Simulated scan of single mutants.
Amino acid sequence: MVPPPVDPALRDCDPPVGGKLSRERMLACALEIIDREGIEKMSMRRLARALGHDPMSLYRYAANKAALLDGVAETVLDELTVDPTDPDWPAQLRAVARQYRRLALTHPNVVPLLVTRPLATPLALRPRGTLRPLEATLALLTRAGFTTADALHIYRALFGLLNGHVLNELQELVDNPDETDDLLRLGLHRLPITEFPLLRSLATTLASYDGAAELERGLDILLNGLTATLTPTTTPTPTP
């Protein structure tokens, strides 16, 4: 079948090398479109136009749009590395957290796929690529001497913090950027002072929000709390 003509305004992905399509190229193009236009603009037909291929050819690599979106999530999470042999588990978790934040800021439109989509899928049915950070983190923590149950608690606490942080950091904080007064910039002046005196008093703090610093503070609280309440039950496995 001859591929349909491609509208130059729609083809914003490089055509596959030699005209041949692959799963990797398809997912890379889907990620490019989502980065620019958002998940709601993604469709199999839209992606086919961008690649210069017939829509039916995409179904060889993704059974439907849901499978395509799962593949995009896997593509992004493939960039998240966890070193299970690191003897300093708090430092490794901190490094993972920083990576995760960078990925979220690089691909903000993909964050809903990373944060909310897995909740609708039983753990064992999720794409394997989305489970690898979990498996590697469990390996890191059990090598450090934690029980598998405690390792899972630590993972959940860490990614609960991370997901909440990136959702908060990516939301629009400024109501009117042309205003010089922080209360007006954030629109907090609309809140009755008798009902929200403390929130209004935080205008300057909210306006000076630093995502990186906020994450570090959250990690300090989390990791310090974990080390104070959870202790390894076995001798850490030595790194080969």
Rank of each mutant, 00 (worst) to 15 (best):
L119Q: 14
L103M: 10
P236S: 07
E74Y: 01
A28Y: 00
E179D: 14
S57I: 03
L105V: 13
R200K: 10
T229V: 15
T137I: 07
T231R: 14
L68E: 08
T233V: 14
M1L: 09
D182F: 12
T229I: 13
R190E: 06
N163C: 04
R49M: 14
E32Y: 01
E214S: 15
P236G: 10
L152R: 02
P90I: 02
E216K: 00
L119H: 11
V166G: 08
L215K: 04
T142H: 03
C13N: 02
H153T: 09
I154E: 00
V82G: 06
R23N: 05
L222V: 06
L222M: 07
K41D: 06
E79W: 00
P236L: 08
G211A: 15
T142N: 03
R132D: 14
E135W: 10
L80G: 07
D182K: 05
R25N: 01
V2A: 10
H107V: 01
I33R: 14
L138H: 09
L27F: 10
E32F: 02
P4G: 11
V110P: 04
D86A: 15
G164Q: 10
G225A: 09
L152P: 00
Y155T: 02
Y100G: 03
M26A: 09
A120E: 12
D181R: 13
W89L: 11
E195T: 11
T116N: 12
T235V: 12
G52W: 03
D54N: 14
D78F: 07
E172L: 10
C29D: 09
L170G: 12
L161S: 03
L162E: 11
L10R: 12
L199I: 13
D88N: 15
A139M: 11
E216G: 03
P90A: 09
R98M: 08
Q92T: 12
P3C: 05
L134Q: 11
L191Y: 12
A67E: 15
N176R: 15
V111L: 05
P108G: 11
L113C: 06
R117L: 01
H189D: 14
N176E: 14
A139L: 12
S208N: 13
L103H: 06
L161K: 03
T121P: 01
T239M: 08
